[in-house]
Amino acid sequence: MANFLIEDVTKSFTSGEVEEQILKGVNLSLKEGEITALVGPSGSGKSTILTIAAGLQRASDGKILFETKDMTKMSQEEIRQVRAKEFGFVFQSSHLVPFLTVEEQLLVMLDVSKTKLGKQEQVKEVEKILKLVEMNHRKDAYPASLSGGERQRVAIARAIIHQPKILFADEPTASLDTKRSKDVMELLRELTKTLNLTTLMVTHDEEMLPYADRIITMRDGYIVE
């Protein structure tokens, strides 16, 4: 079932006098329990469509329907709430909070998303998710003492701890070597299936494509399938 629809989305940037259209009408539907991979040459607009879908920037035109609600019509505060409660994010670098332990990173996310769990349950939930990404043994470690792959696993844990519906990942494996990349993709695939997530991922790496359920190719602001 498609619960996330991108309809005729365009995006233009004006730099100085010239207006440049980066997205020229993108249509895309994402399905629950599936990883949709966006591929294509550099500069084709992959990150742009992902961040628009994720509510991190506005589309110039078009609709973004999340469970029948049109996000392009929402206020900034409504979009923030959707991001906090329904979306999870993984980026190329892990972007963890340097002064929080692994466990605290996840507790902060639970705090932000206003889950109704008590303190005890929150700690239990964190433990459960950390076990899922096999990081529970490092729950008291600070990001600086983790390896790149470990950090990315914590970032993924943070992205799913509040049980979001949609997971956005922009080149989540770009900073990792092949072995670790495959581990992370394995994890993303497993989580997408077990938690029934709707996952949109941008990647450059051909080797990661077997983990995706669907592959969408972009070129010059269009989807070419």
């Binding site: 923030r80 906090a84 994010f89 972007h95």
Partner: peptide, 9 residues
């Protein structure tokens, strides 16, 4: 850091 914290809501 603030940008990320804002991004996650």
């Amino acid at each position: 850091l603030y940008g990320i914290l804002k991004a996650i809501g």
